[in-house]
Amino acid sequence: MKGRSKSRFEVPEALTLEILLKLPIKSLARFNCVCKSWCSSFRTLYFSSKHYHNNLKSSNLNVLFQHRYGNTLYFSQLSTGKDENSLVTHNICLPFFENCVYHPQVYGPCNGLLCLYDHGDGKAALWNPSTGEFKILPRSSSRRPPFPGYTSFKCVGFGYDSKTDDYKVIHFITLVYIDNEFMYPHEFRSRVELYSLRSDSWKEISSVPKACPFSNYLCSICIDGICYWEAMTEYHRDNLILSFDMVSETFSTLHFPDFGGSLEQYNVQLLEFNGSLGVIVHPRLETEKSFDLWVMNGAWTKQFSIESISGVKKLLGFWKNGELFYRGSSDELLLFEPSTQELKKLGINAYPDATCLVAYVESLVPINGRSEHDEHITHQSVRDA
């Protein structure tokens, strides 16, 4: 009896790619060495874009807490499905930002990338926490000597130019003359520079806005290539939203919704809500947090109005569909869903010294940087800490 020849079943290449597109980045990193075609496919714009948009549809939650221990900056990494228990998996040390006078601000995420900026001495870097790439940016030349009576403000925005497939960082340095009698901005002198990842260089933006953007990361956001900041005009005439289009490289302004109060009485924070610009408005002094959520769709419309959320202390950040992260009264991390008005305990400590929380989606987007290992960035397992 003759032996039967073994049949070989080959999966079509297109189907193989569709399967790979659904895998987490850690798995794809291991599969880089399987074959050259896989490795080159993972680096294409098509694959990275499709993989990112697949991740947007999932319920997996990736969160970074920023906090400091001594002079060292740490990020605690949390990963979970929204219906599962939350786990802090690693504490990540970023030595590039050691000995900073201020906590570096985190801008983004933008397609899974983060921009970190030290407002003290102007150090800046891009970071893909999913792939471990880290890129130190060249220094901006925006350094003006102080003028008598002027205070210096710095502000940053980070976004994506879809026309040129480029990631850009916009950097403001604004000298503000403060009227000591009335304690409001009297006059601005601004300089604006724009960094391009594609050219790895800065250039000056000649058209300077007549407004001073705020530097708080909760007062800035980028949606579809447009950066938004809470801003103030000269002589304190108006509070408004300043925007910058990463494609056309032009500024414009937008008024806040008419929420029936003044910005001296209410906090406003910008967020993305289902792909649109949103504003959270809540009283400054109330202990139980009530808020309104307004969304811009051609005109401002009130999306939600929540009368009271008890047991929360501080708003830390936002998730993709308008969910809010709070630090609870017992310093635990809470996730509030406005649509159901459900307040969910995520089961981890929110760190009283945490300065921000960033929720991001895993991404393969390259930044032409170096590996975390080359930049001496360390991941310490929480079990080992």
Score class of each variant (00 low, 15 high):
Pro352Asn: 07
Glu288Met: 09
His53Gln: 11
Arg284Tyr: 03
Met183Pro: 03
Ser276Asn: 13
Asn99Met: 08
Ser59Arg: 14
Lys2Thr: 07
Lys320Trp: 06
Ser152Asp: 04
Lys210Asp: 15
Leu240Val: 05
Tyr195Thr: 00
Gly120Ile: 01
Tyr160Ile: 00
Ser305Phe: 05
Glu342Ser: 10
Tyr351Cys: 02
Val88Asn: 01
Tyr217Pro: 15
Asp161Val: 06
Asn349Ser: 08
Glu264Asn: 13
Met1Leu: 11
Val281Tyr: 02
Tyr360Ala: 04
Ala299Cys: 13
Ser381Cys: 08
Arg4Phe: 06
Met296Asn: 08
Glu288Tyr: 09
Leu197Asn: 00
Pro366Phe: 05
Thr131Ser: 13
Leu94Lys: 01
His255Ala: 11
Thr80Ile: 05
Ala29His: 06
Arg327Asp: 02
Lys344Ala: 02
Asp374Met: 10
Lys163Met: 10
Ser142His: 09
Ser40Met: 15
Phe318Thr: 10
Gly317Val: 04
Ser276Leu: 08
Glu133Met: 09
Gly225Glu: 06
Lys313His: 06
Leu218Glu: 12
Phe256Gly: 02
Lys344Leu: 07
Ser206Ala: 10
Asn267Pro: 02
Cys33Ala: 15
Leu45Ala: 13
Lys163Tyr: 08
Pro213Leu: 13
His90Gln: 08
Asp161Tyr: 04
Phe47Thr: 07
Phe318Asn: 10
Tyr360Phe: 15
Gly3Val: 05
Leu240Met: 14
Pro185Ile: 14
Glu187Arg: 15
Asn62Ile: 00
Ser58Glu: 08
Ser363Pro: 07
Phe182Gly: 02
Ala359Arg: 05
Phe273Trp: 14
Ile377Asp: 01
Leu293Met: 15
Glu264Ser: 15
Gly260His: 07
Pro109Ala: 04
Phe47Arg: 07
Gly122Trp: 04
Phe188Gly: 09
Val295Phe: 05
Phe259Glu: 08
Phe259Ser: 09
Ala125Met: 01
Lys289Tyr: 12
Arg8Glu: 12
Ile367Met: 05
Ser363Gly: 06
Cys356Trp: 00
Ser152Met: 09
Ser339Leu: 01
Thr287Lys: 10
Phe75Gly: 11
Thr301Leu: 13
Thr72Met: 14
Ser252Leu: 02
Gln380Ser: 11
Val268Ala: 13
Lys203Asn: 03
Arg139Lys: 13
Thr72Ile: 14
Pro209Met: 07
Leu17Phe: 10
Leu346Thr: 01
Ser290Asn: 12
Pro145Phe: 10
Lys210Thr: 12
His379Ser: 09
Lys82His: 03
Val312Thr: 06
Gly70Ala: 07
Asn349Ile: 02
Leu271Asn: 01
Phe65Ile: 03
Ile19Ser: 10
Pro129Ile: 09
Leu197Ser: 04
Ser206Trp: 04
Asn216Ala: 15
Ser162Ala: 12
Tyr52Leu: 15
Arg4Lys: 11
Glu234Ile: 08
Tyr235Thr: 11
Val247Ile: 13
Leu364Lys: 11
Ala125Thr: 00
Thr301Pro: 00
Ala29Cys: 08
Leu333Arg: 07
Glu84Asp: 09
Leu17Ala: 05
Leu45Ser: 14
Leu316Pro: 01
Ala359Gly: 02
Met296Cys: 08
Ser58Asn: 06
Glu230Ser: 11
Ile241Asp: 03
Glu98Pro: 00
Trp202Val: 03
His119Asn: 11
Tyr150Thr: 09
Pro366Trp: 04
Gln77Leu: 12
Trp38Arg: 14
Trp229Gly: 11
Lys26Tyr: 06
Thr131Asn: 10
Leu270Ser: 09
Asn54Val: 01
Thr44His: 14
Phe9Glu: 07
His90Leu: 00
